[in-house]
Design a protein around this nucleic acid. Sequence first.
DNA 1: ATAACGAGAGTGAACGTTTATTCTCACAAC
DNA 2: GTTGTGAGAATAAACGTTCACTCTCGTTAT
Lengths: 203, 203
Amino acid sequence: MVLSVETSYQNALNKREVILRAARQCFVQHGFHATGMAEICSAAGMSAGNLYRYFQNKAAIVRAIADETRARIVPVYERLQTHQNPVEAIVQIILHSLQEFCRGTDSRLWLEVLAEASRNDEMRELYISFDHEIRESLKKLLRRAVKGDGRTPGIDIEAASVWLIALLDGAIARVSIDPHVDLEKIMGTLAASIRRCLKVQQA
Amino acid sequence: MVLSVETSYQNALNKREVILRAARQCFVQHGFHATGMAEICSAAGMSAGNLYRYFQNKAAIVRAIADETRARIVPVYERLQTHQNPVEAIVQIILHSLQEFCRGTDSRLWLEVLAEASRNDEMRELYISFDHEIRESLKKLLRRAVKGDGRTPGIDIEAASVWLIALLDGAIARVSIDPHVDLEKIMGTLAASIRRCLKVQQA
DNA sequence: ATAACGAGAGTGAACGTTTATTCTCACAAC
DNA sequence: GTTGTGAGAATAAACGTTCACTCTCGTTAT
């Protein structure tokens, strides 16, 4: 019957999600390499044999997690593209991204992705394509900001986009390491700095 | 004999350094957890049994590497403390640090340290104490900059120090992941941004 | 109504490696 | 002859992965 096929498909999706949730939790605690399959299995409440019905191997799980983490951020960039004030749009993007990463424990996961991307080719390509995508969004906004301002652009748009992302990645690192960090305050001063850098043009 | 003790001590130091150099190389390639002791042994041209005479275990090697990496940066901060122009001193510090990390492959190692610090308590303490130390240096300079400027400080000194380090960490991540990055250009625009943020105070 | 069938979900022990670490023994120096 | 230095085999645990197998159900045949 058609219905049964559909429910089984749904079921498989659910199982994959259960596994991913479990794996995410383990990876946050011990990192990609120091997490064993047995750990993931027990966190998912599942036997090893069964888990391997849903993922080909450990690498596939890691890939899925990295993809998922990345996918959560992209919409933020697209949503704010239509904001009328481009500088404020940029500020909002960075703030939203930071919040999105730092709610829960995704920041640690992202740090793990960064480290992995620096040596694993597949992960590097993922990071770079992700980076390209979101920096294109930023550059569009930066161009609008420079034009709208009516002054000679003292800003190197390419460089500015790089620095915004670096600032974000650095902030994620800090938040995920230092337990005493005050996210609210951090975000306030971050916004101020970005505004200062982007709005004030000097000869 | 006194001399023999001394040379043997020297010898042991050399051996430790040989091992650390080898380990560093391996860690850069595969990270702390994915690097095996056998790998380090063969890179150091040494048997396992012998290597364990110089380090208690793998964790001790990791600790030593992290310490070493950190120790390489601290002097930069101290050296520039006496610079007469505090803003330029800050710019120089950040630029030097970036260069120090990105010469060779230390940037990857630092990324590894960051990821590890987010979950391993010992590494976290190392990072935080390091961070505290260098931010104290930055804060001294920032205070001088604010006073010297003679204007009402529009800058939150604590926050500014945090953001400078975040910027640095983010930049390190980028350099170590993206092979196409132009370090010279990056450093130029970084300096400009910092100057803009720190020098120009607005109501 | 019931027996036979088959597919999907699930198990957990076992596989062959690889891991970090230790043990044993040989050589060299003084 | 003792001590320091080294190699390399040995160990046991842990690793990712696979295996043969069971259990559960819905479908079909009788």
